[in-house]
Simulated scan of single mutants.
Amino acid sequence: MHAETFTTAAPLPCYSQMMRRVIYALAVVQAALMAVAVLVSHRFTTLVAGQGLSLWMVLAAGLTLAALLVPALMLAHSRTRQHLGMAMALIPLLGLAAASVYLN
C-alpha cells in the first residue's frame, strides 16, 4: 500500500486515446491552414508583384510547421508526456490567435 502512494497516476485509456485523436486533428488542421496560407500568399504575390512566392518562404513555413508538429505527434503516443504533446500542438494556433489580435 505504501509503495502505491508515490507512483505516478496513469491516465485512463479512453482519455489517452481521445487526447491522441485531438492532437492528430490539430496537426491536420494546422497543416491544412499552412497550405492555404502558402497558396493565398503565392496568389497574392503573383497578382501584386508579378512573381511567384520564393522557395525559401515555402520552405521556412514547412520547417516551422514540422518543428512544432512532429514532436507533438511523437509525444501523442507517450502516456506520461501526452500533455506536453498537446501543448506543442496548440502553440501554432496560439501564435495565429496572437497575430490576429495584434493585427486587429
Rank of each mutant, 00 (worst) to 15 (best):
A37V: 04
A66F: 05
H2C: 03
L75W: 02
F6W: 08
P11R: 09
M74E: 06
R81L: 10
A10M: 10
A61W: 05
V48F: 14
W56R: 06
G95A: 12
T8Q: 13
V48K: 15
V22M: 06
A97L: 15
W56E: 13
Q30N: 11
L69N: 05
L47W: 14
V22P: 00
T45M: 11
A89Y: 01
A67T: 00
H77Y: 14
A25S: 05
V36S: 07
G85T: 08
V58R: 12
A89I: 01
T5E: 13
S41N: 09
L94N: 07
L93D: 11
I91F: 05
R21S: 07
Y102K: 12
M74S: 10
L96G: 15
T5G: 03
V36L: 14
G52Q: 15
G62C: 08
A10W: 06
G52A: 15
A72V: 01
V36A: 10
L96E: 11
A10S: 14
Y102V: 10
L12N: 02
Y15D: 09
A37L: 11
I23D: 00
A97Y: 12
A67E: 00
H2K: 14
G95M: 14
T8L: 10
H77L: 09
L68R: 04
A60R: 07
E4L: 06
A35W: 00
A35G: 03
H83N: 12
T46Q: 15
M34Y: 01
S100C: 10
L68S: 04
L84A: 13
A89F: 02
L39Q: 09
